[in-house]
Design a protein around this nucleic acid. Structure first.
Length: 367
DNA sequence: AGTATTTGACCGCC
DNA sequence: GGCGGTCAAATACT
């Protein structure tokens, strides 16, 4: 734990230092709306990351008591279990005294979705709603979803979606169980470049091994689509759906945050998505071996820049930042940014505005 | 007609 | 007994 704390401290310092630099850049670039917005988002993300590190308790040396539904556990903790179907549907926890359905295998995601409806939150999997419940003390009901392939493929992945009281544009999504379906994964990741391992989530502890970065981004590429059909109206329903692997594995509880700046109200072709995933387990040091950015086969119009976002010595998490020019070939009418990651990765993804080449170069220079 | 969603009832944990 | 999670019949949608 001591060494972990050192790493976390370095991560914090790195993040905050970067935030400082970005704030400085912001001051210099106040005149450029796009750059300004980008920098603000980056700074906010950095603060989010830093807070997550602090809140996780590992930095402070003492595990945080799980607050409400967000908690972090390591593979070594007792509550870490594998390959147990979610909920009491089968097998009903013989030993656990916990409330039915309160299994700890969860990924928690907080989504700032602008004005999107929860229906529009597309994480790449196919879900069927099977219940809705008013929760005591919550302003909005909680929706319960299960994988559409729960019957045909015995896939017991589930998720709960709850709109936040404080901010109705924010959804707290709890993923439980893991996808064992093939179709679900395939639909989530259309195989542009077929790679069998991309379409299967192996329900074993091996999921904690680092994903192949190239693979990861290949999936990302395969699912980068820009919605062109819904952008016509300056409506408040921004069509920037996104995807994330629902349950990286269900092996640990992670806390991810997604921010969806709602810019389409103002600028038609500006599609801006940013995802920040911050694994919380101190053991997430699987990616530290990424010495250099993976070689990627991105189409010319995507040409992302990839860089390790944290210092190599940081084992708390690593991020991969992907910047892509704004006009990702709109082959389909959906925006679907999908990534696949292990439990301990972090991925920043940003699709920039259309006419900001100079800003883009500037952003590139930041990393 | 087949599929998805809604919603009241039920179950089990606390 | 209260509450959260799930089931399943009814309903809506395609």
């Amino acid at each position: 734990m001591a060494s972990a704390c050192v790493y976390e401290e370095k991560t914090l310092i790195h993040e905050l230092t970067q935030g400082l630099q970005l704030a400085e850049s912001l001051r210099v670039n106040l005149h450029s709306p796009e750059t300004r917005e980008f920098l603000i988002q980056k700074i906010l993300s950095i603060y989010d990351n830093a807070l997550l590190v602090l809140q996780s308790g590992v930095y402070a040396g003492q595990p945080r008591e799980p607050e409400s539904s967000v908690s972090f556990r390591s593979p070594g903790s007792e509550e870490f279990e594998f390959d147990r179907p979610f909920s009491g549907q089968q097998g009903q926890n013989v030993t656990s005294k916990k409330r039915k359905g309160s299994m700890t295998l969860e990924d928690h995601v907080i989504i700032c979705s602008g004005n999107r409806l929860e229906d529009n939150i597309d994480d790449g999997y196919n879900w069927r709603k099977y219940g809705q419940k008013d929760i005591l003390g919550a302003k909005f009901p909680r929706s319960y979803y299960k994988c559409s392939y729960c019957n045909s493929q015995k896939c017991f992945a589930k998720k709960q979606v709850q709109r936040k009281d404080e901010d109705s544009t924010v959804f707290d999504i709890a993923y439980k169980g893991k996808h064992t379906c093939i179709l679900g994964v395939q639909s989530a990741s259309p195989p542009l470049s077929p790679s069998p391992q991309n379409h299967e989530i192996t329900p074993t502890f091996h999921q904690l091994s680092p994903p192949n970065p190239g693979e990861m981004l290949s999936n990302l590429r395969a699912n980068l689509r820009v919605n062109t059909s819904d952008l016509g109206g300056y409506t408040d329903t921004v069509p920037s759906s996104f995807s994330f692997p629902s349950t990286s594995s269900g092996l640990m509880e992670d806390h991810h945050q997604f921010h969806f700046p709602n810019h389409c109200d103002d600028e038609l072709w500006q599609v801006y998505s940013q995802a920040v995933i911050s694994p919380a387990t101190p053991e997430s040091n699987f990616f530290t071996e990424w010495g250099s950015p993976p070689s990627l086969d991105f189409p010319a119009n995507l040409e992302p820049l990839i860089s390790p976002a944290t210092t190599p010595e940081s084992n708390f998490y690593n991020s991969l930042r992907v910047y892509s020019p704004p006009f990702i070939s709109p082959a389909t009418s959906e925006s679907n940014i999908f990534t696949e990651w292990g439990s301990s990765s972090s991925l920043d993804l940003l699709t920039g505005p259309a006419d900001v080449d100079s800003d883009f170069e500037f952003m590139n220079s930041l990393f």
